[in-house]
Computed example of a mutant assay.
Amino acid sequence: MPIPPNGPRHVAFIMDGNGRWAQQRGRPRLLGHRAGARRVREIVAACPDLGVEYATIFAFSTENWKRTQSEVSGLMSLFRRYIESEANTLLTQGTRVRFIGDRHRLDAKLRGLMDMIEALTAHNTRCHLTIALNYGGRDEVARATKRLARDVAAGRLDPETINDQTLPRYLDTHVLPDPDLVIRTSGEARISNFLLWQSAYAEYEFVDTLWPDFTREKFVEVLSRYGTRDRRFGAVRA
């Protein structure tokens, strides 16, 4: 299926369904997360050839700490192994890696690996991969508002000049374009506190496929549907 020329520049993914994928096979949930990590590798590698410059993945939310201790520990171990195993591949592919979210609750080893891969890939430009880790949209806006308030209190920012272009400069994503398309897998139709400010005018696709089964071919199908949409951003065609 050909990709339309007016495809999305930035695609964000809510990668849902890893646990269900494993449970359907009678396996532990963590096995599904491992399968999901392999799918991330395939989708990110496909992005440049499909015209997608920016990919943002929702890896772990601020609410995911409510899961069992064994699953949270397993996920943190998986994140560490993913960075260690994928760093050189991402560097060679020309992928730049960034992280968004509150890092303070993450362990020191994981934070160090995050710093390492960000520095290692800092000069790559072929694809920009952003990983949302301990991320929540409301938490991000709250943290951004605190930084903005400190600048006002310090006299660095005039409150009378604040408008809808001001807050984005304080968000974790301040160096990224807003997403054009948000894809959620597994059949759930929720945005789950993901990129709340940035996705104000994004197109959404809720697909029934569980994330470990979301292949490159299924990604192409979604991109092709996106190409048929008329994005007016509140305006009316003459």
Rank of each mutant, 00 (worst) to 15 (best):
R229E: 07
R231D: 12
L110I: 02
G32H: 05
R169N: 12
H123W: 08
E188G: 10
T62E: 08
R20K: 03
M1I: 12
R126V: 12
I57A: 13
H123K: 13
T145W: 03
F60M: 13
T209M: 09
V220L: 02
A153E: 11
I43H: 04
G7M: 00
D49S: 15
L210V: 12
G74Q: 07
T62Y: 06
F58W: 13
L106N: 07
S61D: 11
V40H: 02
R105F: 15
G112Y: 01
T89C: 07
W211D: 01
V44K: 00
S85E: 15
R147K: 15
C127I: 06
E205R: 12
P8C: 04
L171A: 04
R169T: 15
P168F: 07
A12L: 03
S85R: 14
W211K: 04
E221I: 08
D208T: 13
A200C: 12
K218Y: 11
R150S: 14
I100R: 04
A46K: 00
H174Y: 14
F206G: 01
F214M: 05
K218E: 14
I162A: 08
R232V: 06
E203W: 07
P159R: 04
G136N: 05
E217R: 13
R216H: 10
S224E: 09
E42H: 08
D164K: 10
Q93D: 11
L167F: 04
I14A: 04
R237G: 15
H128G: 06
E86A: 00
R39M: 10
G112M: 00
Y170F: 12
F79V: 02
F233S: 08
Q165N: 14
H128Q: 15
A12V: 04
E84Q: 11
L171T: 10
L196K: 04
G17T: 02
K146I: 13
V182Y: 03
A45Q: 08
I117K: 03
H10L: 09
R80K: 15
R184M: 10
Q23P: 11
R80N: 11
E71N: 06
G187K: 01
E217N: 14
D164G: 09
L113P: 01
G36K: 04
E217K: 13
P212T: 09
E140V: 05
A37R: 03
L167S: 02
D208Q: 15
C127F: 06
A55D: 00
V40A: 07
R67K: 05
V152F: 08
R9Y: 11
I191V: 14
N134F: 06
L30Q: 05
N6K: 14
L171K: 05
V207D: 09
R190Y: 08
R143S: 06
W197Y: 10
F58T: 06
I14S: 02
V97M: 02
L195I: 03
D115F: 03
T228H: 14
E221C: 11
R67Q: 05
I83M: 00
F194I: 08
E84S: 11
T215F: 06
